[in-house]
């Protein structure tokens, strides 16, 4: 199983299920653990693609400042609202970027931030509804000059 790269796993639609079945992830322990962060966030709940919109530039000239916007349609009522959206970067030294926490008072599940990207990579966002179901969106960003310093 260890011959499969994380990227390949992500590309396959069943990637998340397959990865969850790998007992040991020690191979990646010292590096970016975004996959574990995703697993932890989703927590075994239903994960579907689509619906969540992830706006990022296709090409980022400066990796130190990449504008990001996430939004998902939701009535944002007490009964049905998005509780949080997590953003991770697959190719940064650390996976985490930011986690937004919403409440019905937010009115909309939408937020913008500026992030750093070390190199060309995939950025993944996952939204979680109050019933636990999750929505995933992924986008590749080409980075001309990497951020994160050196």
């Amino acid at each position: 199983m260890r011959d499969i790269s994380r990227r390949q796993l992500l590309l396959s639609t069943s990637g998340f299920a397959v990865l969850a079945s790998i007992p040991s992830k020690k191979l990646f322990a010292a590096t970016n653990q975004y996959q574990q962060q995703i697993d932890q966030f989703v927590g075994g709940n239903k994960l579907s693609e689509g619906q969540l919109e992830l706006d990022l530039p296709e090409i980022a000239e400066n990796g130190n400042l990449v504008p990001l916007n996430v939004s998902i349609d939701s009535p944002m009522t007490d009964e049905d609202h998005i509780t949080s959206i997590m953003v991770v970067a697959a190719g940064n030294p650390l996976g985490g970027v930011a986690t937004f926490h919403f409440s019905p008072l937010s009115g909309e599940a939408s937020a913008s931030i500026r992030m750093r990207l070390a190199r060309t990579q995939d950025v993944i966002a996952i939204a979680k509804r109050n019933d636990g179901s999750c929505f995933l969106a992924k986008k590749t960003v080409k980075v001309t000059i990497g951020g994160c310093g050196g």
Partner: peptide, 17 residues
């Protein structure tokens, strides 16, 4: 609204919500 920020957030953090 709340937000957890990681080192991957750019300098002078900007947030819109």
């Amino acid at each position: 609204f709340k937000c957890d920020l990681e080192p991957a957030v750019a300098a002078n953090p900007y947030l819109k919500f």
